[in-house]
């Protein structure tokens, strides 16, 4: 079996995987980083979003082997020294989560949005989230949280 190695949340990580092993399986089953979730099998729900080399990626849609040598950040790597990342803090402040299952993917996706577009409009936020499904919140407070994290008043 091929060996893959990558940096995950700043730490070196390596393992032997089958060729068909997905990045999300590598994270969850090999590294036991279970914060990244699997909500579908058709690349639609976004529960599995992580950052690969700084960009949001659906980790169910990428082989572990494709991430060989990459820098991967998962939800576990977002807070620093026990301080929530501003996006995590905004989700808590604005009640942008209920069951929490879509949340890691939502937060990782939202962080990438603001990296890409520091001051998105509500429409741009809603369109960006097209690849992240949440059944609980109706998105109202997720949008609010992202607006607040972007420093928009009234968010």
């Amino acid at each position: 079996m091929p060996t893959v190695s990558m940096t995950v949340n700043g730490q070196p990580a390596a393992g032997e995987v089958e060729g068909r092993t997905l990045l999300v399986e590598f994270l969850r089953e090999h590294l036991r980083l279970t914060g990244t979730h699997v909500g579908c099998d058709t690349s639609q729900c976004g529960a599995c979003v992580v950052h690969v080399n700084g960009k949001s990626v659906k980790s169910c849609t990428m082989l572990a082997a494709q991430a060989d040598g990459a820098e991967v950040t998962t939800i576990e790597g977002l807070a620093t020294n026990g301080e929530l990342h501003p996006m995590q803090a905004a989700f808590k402040e604005h009640h942008g989560l209920q069951c929490g299952f879509c949340t890691p993917g939502m937060v990782m996706s939202a962080v990438d949005l603001l990296n890409t577009n520091a001051n998105p409009s509500e429409r741009e936020i809603r369109e960006w989230l097209e690849g992240n499904i949440c059944r609980c919140t109706g998105y109202n407070n997720i949008v609010k949280a992202i607006q607040a994290a972007a420093g928009q008043t009234g968010g």
Partner: peptide, 18 residues
């Protein structure tokens, strides 16, 4: 603000598949 959010937001929720 919700008690449960800290673990959900940091990937420390413990769902059955975890």
């Amino acid at each position: 603000r919700r008690t449960e959010d800290n673990r959900f937001l940091t990937g420390k929720g413990r769902y059955t598949d975890d």
